Amino acid sequence: MLTSNGYTLDDSPSRLGRMEPVPDAIRRDKDALWDRLRRDGYLYLPQQLDPQLVASFREYYFTAMADTGITEHGSDPAVGIGAQGEIDRAKIRAALFDEIVPGERYAALTGHPDIRGWFEWFLGDDVHLHRRKIIRHIRPGESGIGTATQAHYDLVYLRQGSERVLSMWIPLGDCPVEQGGLTYLEGSHHWALAAERERGDRPPAASITADLPALAEAHDARWLLADYRAGDVMVHSSYVVHASTDNVDPQGRIRLSTDIRYQR
């Protein structure tokens, strides 16, 4: 049973499905990738990054968070086992915003040649990395409204930029479905774009809903999931609706991820 913000997802075949990764045969075919992105709203790129690069950053992150209470005392920071006790939110903010986010390790990851170079190739130009870069960790067992990412599409948060911005979501470690990875509402970029262009809708910078099952029902669509591995990335349109599920990982691992945005 999968939940998001406490809502149980409908697991019937008409409401829940699996994402298809980009086939190896077209990984270097730019036109085919653009066709796929326009059709699906996302590109699932397995092993775009060296898994060791991701594993190294995961270990660095949880080492920096060692005295915040989010990881099990004495556990291996490379694994990131979630603790169940109290956390020190002030120390978490300090580690994030004083050390990790402005630090060289995060800059090296988000600007890595396998990321920045890929966008330069795919967009066919010099590229700009948006300052809106987000790192999220979710411990197992956390649930309720506001825990998992609610349904939204990215453009509502990027109104001062170009609508031709692409997001990349990077799981920082293996992230099977039970760990609460990103999920996409199938075909949602078509109706989101149509609403903005045809009716002039400009939704505010806010999520659509925390109730993923109701949104799927309203649009007669499926939420699409995947078992991500360290090194996999997702590239998606600024119009595709996405969210995350709750972390119920039986091994107790924290879900760690980052999302970044590039444009010409």
Results as ranks from 00 to 15, higher is better:
residue 115 I to S: 09
residue 234 M to E: 04
residue 74 G to F: 00
residue 26 I to D: 03
residue 153 Y to K: 00
residue 130 H to K: 01
residue 12 S to V: 06
residue 237 S to G: 04
residue 152 H to Y: 04
residue 166 L to E: 00
residue 86 E to W: 05
residue 73 H to Y: 03
residue 3 T to F: 00
residue 72 E to M: 12
residue 134 I to R: 08
residue 207 S to P: 11
residue 208 I to Y: 13
residue 116 R to S: 13
residue 235 V to L: 13
residue 230 A to P: 08
residue 11 D to T: 15
residue 232 D to W: 04
residue 242 H to I: 02
residue 113 P to V: 08
residue 41 G to H: 14
residue 77 P to D: 04
residue 90 A to H: 05
residue 96 L to P: 02
residue 114 D to R: 15
residue 233 V to P: 01
residue 54 V to C: 02
residue 53 L to W: 05
residue 145 I to R: 09
residue 212 L to E: 05
residue 76 D to N: 15
residue 90 A to R: 11
residue 162 S to V: 06
residue 141 G to A: 08
residue 6 G to R: 03
residue 208 I to G: 02
residue 173 G to H: 04
residue 188 S to N: 10
residue 20 E to P: 04
residue 224 L to K: 07
residue 202 R to N: 09
residue 150 Q to R: 10
residue 90 A to P: 00
residue 175 C to S: 14
residue 173 G to A: 09
residue 70 I to A: 06
residue 262 Y to D: 03
residue 78 A to M: 08
residue 70 I to T: 12
residue 99 E to D: 15
residue 87 I to P: 01
residue 56 S to L: 09
residue 103 G to C: 09
residue 156 V to A: 10
residue 212 L to N: 07
residue 26 I to C: 09
residue 227 D to A: 03
residue 50 D to C: 05
residue 83 A to W: 01
residue 134 I to E: 11
residue 173 G to Y: 02
residue 118 W to T: 01
residue 170 I to Q: 03
residue 239 Y to E: 01
residue 55 A to G: 12
residue 90 A to W: 00
residue 185 L to Y: 01
residue 264 R to G: 14
residue 18 R to S: 14
residue 153 Y to F: 15
residue 53 L to S: 05
residue 250 P to M: 09
residue 213 P to C: 05
residue 152 H to D: 10
residue 221 A to C: 03
residue 204 P to F: 03
residue 158 L to Q: 13
residue 190 H to E: 10
residue 112 H to I: 06
residue 32 A to E: 12
residue 130 H to V: 00
residue 251 Q to Y: 02
residue 131 R to V: 12
residue 233 V to K: 01
residue 106 Y to I: 07
residue 57 F to P: 06
residue 196 E to L: 09
residue 199 R to I: 08
residue 62 F to E: 00
residue 160 Q to C: 07
residue 244 S to L: 06
residue 203 P to F: 11
residue 13 P to F: 05
residue 93 R to V: 06
residue 45 L to V: 10
residue 182 L to S: 10
residue 165 V to E: 14
residue 71 T to R: 04
residue 190 H to P: 01
residue 186 E to V: 02
residue 84 Q to A: 13
residue 150 Q to E: 15
residue 89 R to V: 12
residue 44 Y to P: 01
residue 188 S to R: 11
residue 74 G to L: 06
residue 226 A to G: 02
residue 43 L to M: 05
residue 89 R to T: 14
residue 106 Y to C: 09
residue 22 V to Q: 10
residue 166 L to Q: 03
residue 90 A to G: 12
